[in-house]
Amino acid sequence: MHLIDRIAHTSRWSRRPTTEKLLLCLGGLAVCLAGPAPFSGVLAFAAACALALAAARLPARAFFGVLALPLGFLAASLPMLMISVGFAPGVTVSWRPDQAPVAAALFARAAGATAWLALLILTTPAHAMIPQLRRIGVPAFLVEIMLLTYRLIFVFAETAAAGYHAQAARLGHAGWRRAVHSLGELAAALFARAMTRARRMETGLAARGFEGDLPVLPEDDAPAAAARLALIAAGLLLLLACGFAAERLIHV
């Protein structure tokens, strides 16, 4: 979470208009899901990686690190798709190599989709992305809560880390049983602290006229250029077309 956030704020694309990044990445995701199965997935994955590494200059380790976890889970569950279980008359388990293309198609799609999402979250800070939700009709109070939660994650992570180090300094984490016990106490202490903190934050916000809403100015996004949006759309269509072309060529 911290790493993702840090990169989102410091990457070369951080200050690009959010609208452009949303169109590009959600568009890439759509191409990957709408195009012919394995081809579009592979192409979309390659395109997202190329953009992430060459254009946005994301650190490769971080980018693939973000991909590794979901894709690792997916890869681990693929063999399940190639096993078929029958229940009549007894229980039979059979290996179905003919299911391999289905599994491959699924994996390619998921990999492509994950790569586009990774590109989005690693280039767009949450506080720039969340207000965009207003545009698609998410109610203001939900957006406000999300922004507040995003900020509080870091406040509490800091408190939790400090509490953990304070316990460790007094050997609270030496040995398994003591560690479990200490973590329980830390959780209880954090809850109490969260409550006091919430009360104090209410005081702080009330001093600035808080009466239930959290109005803020929208981020000064660089305005999205129509030409660039058109270029992005064209690129996405090209990617989709390549998917269909690849399907043709390889099937023939």
Binding site: L147, R151, L205, V216
Partner: peptide, 12 residues
């Protein structure tokens, strides 16, 4: 930290 509720300085 009791007073800052937004992750963006300008928004806050």
């Amino acid at each position: 930290d009791d007073q800052l509720f937004s992750a963006s300085v300008r928004q806050d």
